[in-house]
Amino acid sequence: MAIKDNIKPTRSELIELKKKIKLSQSGHKLLKMKRDGLILELFAILEKAKDVRAEVEKQFTVASQKLAIAKSVEGAVVVRSTAFALKDTPKLELESKNVMGVVVPKIEASSVHKKLNEHGYGIIGTSSRIDEAVDAYEILVEKLILAAEIETTMKKLLDDIEKTKRRVNALEFKVIPELTEAKDFIVLRLEEMERENTFRLKRIKG
């Protein structure tokens, strides 16, 4: 079916097909290279993602312990009322970066980790337990932002690898074989016509 059924076995078609095959083959080669490159990139990021994730988990334990300490020493009442004081949320800036034709996000966070006198609560009336809980959570948020960036990158890369792989496979197992088949068919057909012509000529002569 497919290409073979609706092509005319002409010489010009053959040339066209040959061109197409050549193009597909070079495309296939390129895509394969891209796939390999992406996979390499993915592995590099995978390592990072693993580290970041472990760090996030570690920081989360630290932060929740610090918060638990602050809550139990100062009282949940104090902690919550101090938390009231903070109003401005960290600003996130989204940019994009290009890794081998894949657009991945780059997150730029500002004013997550603040200085002691920028937390929004008074220093005189609070203790360092609050500072420590706040710091721990700020670091956690920073890590989370980093993790978000890396993991989104990873997901995008994976998607793209999948897509590239499908394309490579389609080229390798479908497009190129079909084109080759069609070419063979045309070649066969042309030869057949050649033979028929020769035969006809001989008949006329004879």
Partner: peptide, 11 residues
């Protein structure tokens, strides 16, 4: 600036 008056109150 809330921190400022919190500090002022404590002082």
């Amino acid at each position: 600036d809330l921190a400022e008056i919190e500090n002022a109150l404590d002082k």
